[in-house]
Amino acid sequence: MNYADEFRDPIAARGVLAAIARVTDEIGATREKPVHIMEICGGHTHAIFRYGLDKLTPPGLEFIHGPGCPVCVLPMSRIDECVEIAERPGVIMTTFGDAMRVPGHRKSLIQANADGADIRMVYSPLDALELARRHPDREVVFFGLGFETTTPSTALTILQAAADGQTNFSVFCNHITVPPPIKALLDDPHMILDGFVGPGHVSMVIGVRPYDFIARDYGKPIVVAGFEPLDLLQSVLMVLEQIRDGRAEVENQYSRVVPDDGNPVSIAACAEVYEPRPSFEWRGLGEIDASGMRIRPAYAAWDAEVKFGVGYGKGPRLVAEPDGCRCGDVMTGRIKPHSCPQFGKRCTPEMPLGALMVSSEGACAAYYQYGGLRLEEAL
């Protein structure tokens, strides 16, 4: 399979791993602490555990699993508001599958569905718009969530609904952006980070320029990476070589897919439909300035917050995580998933207690599923 098999070659992987070990040793000769590299994409976290890359890399290198799962970091208050909308008469709530199980303060969407709300899983916001066309007597709401990867499809669907005059369709917007939480993590005095493996799918939309501040203002290297094991290993090696050489640059390992300047059509659609929120709560991390998107007033007719009188800042926020849940500590690299006292006990993928166990891209769920695999066994 072109662009897959050649990036899963164990022989080539062993060569890159040898180079990683060599460069890690060279860095270790000048410092005592391990090198801490954070991946900030749930797909990367999933791949690291699936292929056992955290076990194959040398002891002087530590992966820190960042807040790369947009489903996982949704605050409880927003789930509660989504359930409130879904339980109103005449509403059809639509959402992606992973969002169905995110626990809110009262219940999850899947529990609300069991209690009688009409909640349907869709594969794209266009599916929700089609439901609105087929049910003109119902209010169809799409639970819009995700990083920059999914914001264009929601924006384009709103533009299509506006062009069609389909006013029984609206979006409960919870789209979030990647650069602000990276800045928040770098501003945290307790964080120990030496470099980043940058997100692949997000960068397909926004390009690599939005990460310039990481190298310019904080002196940390970042390499945008693909999702196959050799993509990730090469990206780690590129980060390590920058650290060894005393450089801090933005590099693009995934150039076969990611253009440096992003996708202009997607960027334009998002700029037309969204504007930044002053702040947004990230589950496990707290409030982060300008990290969320909201629908512009020009498209208020398709904004569920306006239509249903709910919205960020109108209800309780910063709801505490369940007792013993340490998702925030996992996302900031203070502990590994298995060090959480609830991991695999009260908190499993079937019955998630914490945010990072909800989606397969969450660090805890990925560790739970793939924790014992090695690259040779997974290929």
Rank of each mutant, 00 (worst) to 15 (best):
L233G: 06
L186E: 00
D329I: 04
A162K: 08
E81C: 02
G246A: 13
A298K: 03
E272L: 12
L156S: 13
V35S: 01
D164V: 05
E148R: 12
R50P: 05
V208Y: 04
V330R: 13
L356C: 13
E148S: 02
N168E: 08
V16Q: 06
H65D: 03
C69T: 01
V257W: 13
S291E: 07
M191T: 12
G315E: 12
M1H: 13
L159N: 08
S235Y: 03
E84V: 07
H201L: 00
C327I: 08
A269M: 09
E130A: 13
H105P: 12
D194Y: 03
Y368R: 11
D194C: 03
G116S: 09
T167M: 10
P58M: 01
F213E: 06
Y299H: 07
R134F: 13
K345V: 12
G311D: 05
N2L: 14
I267A: 15
A19H: 09
V306G: 11
A29Y: 11
Y51T: 06
I243S: 02
T57C: 14
N252Q: 06
K307L: 15
G313C: 02
P59F: 01
L318F: 15
P89A: 09
I85S: 00
Y3G: 05
D25G: 11
D118R: 15
A184P: 04
L373R: 15
A184I: 04
C270D: 10
N2W: 12
R317M: 05
A99F: 15
I182W: 06
Y367A: 14
G165I: 09
E228K: 04
A271K: 10
W282D: 03
L240S: 07
K345I: 13
M121Y: 09
Q160N: 15
A162L: 04
D323F: 04
S170K: 06
C82R: 04
Y254N: 14
P297R: 04
A12R: 13
E87R: 12
G165S: 05
V306L: 02
Y274R: 00
K183F: 02
A99V: 14
G52V: 04
G28R: 15
V330L: 08
D245I: 05
L186W: 06
V239I: 05
A268M: 07
Y274W: 09
T57Q: 10
A99E: 12
P67H: 06
P276E: 15
G97D: 02
Q234K: 06
D303R: 10
D25P: 02
I37C: 11
Y312C: 01
T151A: 15
G28E: 10
I48K: 07
D323Y: 04
A86V: 00
A86S: 04
L285Y: 02
L193H: 00
A163L: 14
H65F: 15
M238E: 07
C72S: 06
L233S: 00
E321L: 14
V236G: 01
I295Q: 05
V16N: 02
G104W: 11
L373Y: 13
V171F: 07
I64T: 10
A271M: 11
G15Q: 07
F213C: 02
G311C: 08
